[in-house]
Structures are given as structure tokens and as C-alpha cells.
């Protein structure tokens, strides 16, 4: 028992897993009790069984797949465009002081503008077709990505660059052969955090300006007060988010076996 409260000391892995699973079961138990007790109406809190039945139904009939597909497409496009533009800009801002002056203050300024507030503007500019959702995800992630990548560059130890110079490397070699490989694992991690944000902005986009996708599905369920479908939709999004997150972690371990924590 005393062992549990040792600061930063690992506990037995079995105990760890049991505790983690236990919390899930506890939440499920409380949910079941609250919904089954009848004190709360099904409309406010659907029972776990009804949510499960909904999930089995949408996956069984296959009607959810087009929604998942279109949502995944929007995430992918917005995220990839943001990465393609944001990574080089972040690297420049972290490497050269003049580039930092050009890029970062403006980025930090835009970063604090609430992205959902851009929705009406985006609808004026892009209408309500796919480009609108992609643009929203792009805007939501790009300005977060740039300063984070720049910070990754700044975290590369100065001595590592000095060592490269004393081995005969010129500036372009230092960028290509030292800075970029050095930031790679951390930047994968940055992208992992970004894709989490992308899921959030996807739902924002789909809740207000879409006629397909997982977010739209939730909105549609709200109209008919189908709370079990709302719960189910949120669960699906959560699981997909978790899945992409784990894929990034796995890719990081496989791609960068040399990094601390890599395999």
C-alpha cells in the first residue's frame, strides 16, 4: 500500500492495467445504474444497452461507413495540407531569426483567434462543399503547428549543430542532415497532437455546415432527440481519434527506433 504513494515509482503492470480497466468499468456501472434507476429520462441519458444496440445497428447495416469515410477524408486533406505548409514554415522560423520575425508573431496572433468563429466567413468564401470543411481543419491546425515545430527546432542541442560544423558540414547540410532528422520524432508527436485538434475542428465544421459525416449524424440525431445516436456518434469519434493517436505512437516507435522510448 505504501508503495502506491512513492513519488514517480512504477507500480506492478498488472495492477496498473487492473486500475485502468477498473475506472472504465466503474463509469459504465454508474452509467447503467443512473439510466436503469429510472430517475433520469431515456431522452437525457440513454442506457448503455440502447447505445450498444444503436452501434450494432449502424455498423451491422453498414450505414455508418460513408459518414466515417467522408469525415476521415476531410481530416486527412486538411491535416496534410496544414502539414505540408506548416512543417517548412516551422522549420524556417526555428532556424533563422529573420524567418521567425516574419512568421511567428503573425502566427501567434492568428492562433488565438477562435477557429469556430471563422465558420461563417469560410461559408461565404467556400460555400458548404468539401473545401469549406477542409479549410476549417487547415486553419485550425496550421497556426498551432508552426510554433510547435519551431520550438522542436529550437530544442535541438546547440552542441549537436556545432559538432556537425566541425565535421565540415555547411549550413544546408546542417539543416538537412542534422536539424530535420533531429526533430523528426518530436515532430511526429506534434502531428499526433495536431490530428487530435483536427478531429475537434472536423466536428465543428460538420455541425454547422454539412450534410454528411459523423458530426452531421450527431446533429441529425439531435433533431429527433435520439440521444442514443448522439452518444453512439460521440463514442465512434472518440474511438477513431484514439485509433489515429495510437497509430501515430506506433509509427513513431517503428520509424525512429533510435529515439528514447523507440523500439
Amino acid at each position: 500500500m505504501r508503495k502506491l504513494f512513492r513519488i514517480r515509482t512504477k507500480i506492478d503492470i498488472k495492477l496498473y492495467n487492473a486500475l485502468a480497466l477498473g475506472v472504465f468499468l466503474l463509469v459504465l456501472f454508474l452509467w447503467t445504474m443512473l439510466s436503469a434507476g429510472g430517475s433520469i429520462s431515456q431522452i437525457f441519458l440513454p442506457s448503455p444497452q440502447s447505445v450498444l444496440i444503436y452501434l450494432i445497428h449502424v455498423f451491422g447495416s453498414g450505414q455508418i461507413w460513408p459518414d466515417i469515410g467522408i469525415s476521415a477524408y476531410r481530416i486527412f486533406m486538411g491535416f496534410v495540407i496544414a502539414a505540408v505548409i506548416g512543417l517548412p514554415l516551422g522549420i524556417l522560423a526555428g532556424t533563422f531569426n529573420f524567418a521567425e520575425a516574419l512568421i511567428q508573431p503573425l502566427t501567434e496572433f492568428i492562433r488565438y483567434m477562435p477557429v469556430p468563429a471563422f465558420v461563417p466567413l469560410i461559408m461565404v468564401w467556400f460555400g458548404i462543399d468539401e473545401s469549406a470543411k477542409i479549410a476549417l481543419i487547415f486553419l485550425g491546425t496550421l497556426f498551432q503547428l508552426i510554433p510547435m515545430v519551431a520550438d522542436n527546432v529550437r530544442a535541438v542541442p546547440e552542441d549537436l549543430l556545432s559538432a556537425a560544423y566541425t565535421l565540415g558540414a555547411k549550413r544546408i547540410t546542417v539543416i538537412m542532415k542534422v536539424i530535420i532528422p533531429a526533430i523528426a520524432p518530436r515532430t511526429m508527436d506534434t502531428l499526433r497532437i495536431m490530428i487530435g485538434w483536427a478531429w475537434t475542428y472536423l466536428i465543428v465544421a460538420e455541425l454547422v455546415a454539412a450534410n454528411s459525416g459523423l458530426g452531421y449524424n450527431i446533429l441529425k440525431a439531435q433533431r429527433y432527440l435520439k440521444t442514443d445516436a448522439i452518444f453512439g456518434g460521440i463514442l465512434i469519434i472518440g474511438c477513431l481519434g484514439l485509433l489515429t493517436d495510437r497509430l501515430f505512437v506506433l509509427a513513431n516507435r517503428k520509424l525512429f527506433p533510435w529515439a528514447e522510448g523507440g523500439k
Binding site: D159, L160, S162, A163, T166, L167, G168, F256, W258
Partner: peptide, 27 residues
């Protein structure tokens, strides 16, 4: 700085993404 003056630092400055032999290959 130039390759005619090699340097060893107090901090560990091996390139962590390169193996031992690749590190020696770098220059």
C-alpha cells in the same frame, strides 16, 4: 568552422539517429 579542426565536446554530441559506424562516417 571547418573539417580541418575536429572537435570533441563535453556534452554527448553523437547524432542519435545514426548508428556508431554511421556517426564516424558523417564527416
Amino acid at each position: 568552422p571547418g573539417a580541418d579542426r575536429g572537435m570533441v565536446f563535453q556534452t554527448y554530441t553523437l547524432f542519435p539517429w545514426l548508428s556508431v559506424e554511421e556517426n564516424i562516417h558523417f564527416g
